[in-house]
C-alpha cells in the first residue's frame, strides 16, 4: 500500500515542542524504566492447569459458558453448544487450524459458511445471518477471561461480531496469565519490524451495556451469548 499523507504536522508539533521544551521530534526518546511493575506479579507462578481454573471462574463473572474438552471430543462439544444455543447455522474463519484440528469436515456437515477473504459483501451478509460464529483464540488471558484474536487475512473481523452467538476454541497452550503477556508478544513483533494484525480483538465474553441506569444488559451490538471451549491437547 502506498504511504499515506501527513498534513500540518510540522507547525502542530513545533507548537507542542515549544511548550514542553522538547528536542527535535525525530531524535529518539529513551523510555525510562518504570519504578514498579505490578503487572508482572499477577498470577505469578501459576501453571497451565491453575490458569484454566482462573479462567473458568472468571467466565462466571463475564456471563460466558465454559467447556473443557479434548481434541477427540471437540466436535461433540461444539454440537452440545450449538444445541444449547438452539442454533444451526455457523460461520467460521478461513483458518488452517480448523483443518489441523480435524473439525473442518464436521463443520461442513452443518449449515456452515467459511469466511471468504475475497468476497466482502457476501461474507458480511452471511455472517450477519449466521446464528453462531466460531474462531480459534490466538492468545487467551486467564485473569480477565479474554480471547485475543489476531484478525488478519482470512480471519474476518465480523465472524466473532455479527452472529448472535460466539464460540471460541481455546488451545490449552494459548492460555497466559493476563494482558501483559499478550502485549509483550505484540511488542516483540513490533520491535522485530514484523507486521501485526490490522485488527487485534481482545474479547471478554458477550457484548453488554450498562448505559440504562447502570443495569447490566448482556447482548447489545455484538454477540448475546458466548462460549469458550478449552481443548486440552491443542
Amino acid at each position: 500500500m502506498p504511504k499515506g499523507n501527513i498534513i500540518n504536522r510540522d507547525s502542530f508539533l513545533t507548537n507542542i515542542r515549544e511548550k514542553i521544551g522538547g528536542i527535535a521530534a525525530d531524535k529518539p526518546v529513551e523510555k525510562p524504566s518504570w519504578s514498579v511493575k505490578p503487572q508482572k506479579k499477577v498470577l505469578e507462578g501459576y501453571d497451565q492447569d491453575q490458569l484454566i481454573s482462573v479462567l473458568r471462574e472468571q467466565c462466571k463473572e463475564i456471563h460466558t459458558d465454559f467447556y473443557q474438552t479434548t481434541l477427540a471430543e471437540l466436535t461433540g462439544t461444539i454440537t452440545e453448544v450449538m444445541e444449547e444455543y438452539e442454533s444451526e447455522s455457523i460461520v467460521y474463519s478461513d483458518d488452517p487450524r480448523f483443518d489441523n484440528a480435524n473439525i473442518e469436515e464436521y463443520l461442513q456437515g452443518l449449515n456452515a459458511f467459511k469466511w471468504d477473504r475475497n468476497d466482502r459483501e457476501n461474507s458480511i451478509k452471511v455472517a450477519e445471518r449466521a446464528e453462531v460464529g466460531i474462531t480459534f483464540s490466538d492468545i487467551t488471558l486467564a485473569e480477565s477471561g479474554t480471547v485475543v484474536l489476531l484478525n488478519d487475512k482470512g480471519q474476518g473481523r465480523s465472524v466473532s461480531l455479527l452472529p448472535a452467538n460466539y464460540i471460541a476454541i481455546i488451545p490449552k497452550t494459548s492460555i497466559v496469565k493476563r494482558m501483559t503477556q499478550a502485549t509483550d508478544y505484540i511488542h516483540a513483533k513490533v520491535e522485530k519490524g514484523e507486521d501485526i494484525a490490522s485488527c487485534i480483538n481482545f474479547i471478554t465474553g458477550p457484548s453488554n451495556s450498562a448505559d440504562i441506569e447502570m443495569n447490566l444488559v448482556v447482548g447489545v451490538h455484538g454477540p448475546i451469548r458466548a462460549a469458550y471451549i478449552v481443548v486440552d491437547d491443542l
Partner: peptide
C-alpha cells in the same frame, strides 16, 4: 478486569482481508 471489547486497529485493512 477488561471490558468486553478492546479493539486494537492498525492501519486500513490489508489485501487479503474481506472486512
Amino acid at each position: 478486569k477488561l471490558t468486553s471489547y478492546i479493539t486494537a486497529l492498525t492501519g486500513p485493512k490489508q489485501l487479503e482481508e474481506a472486512d
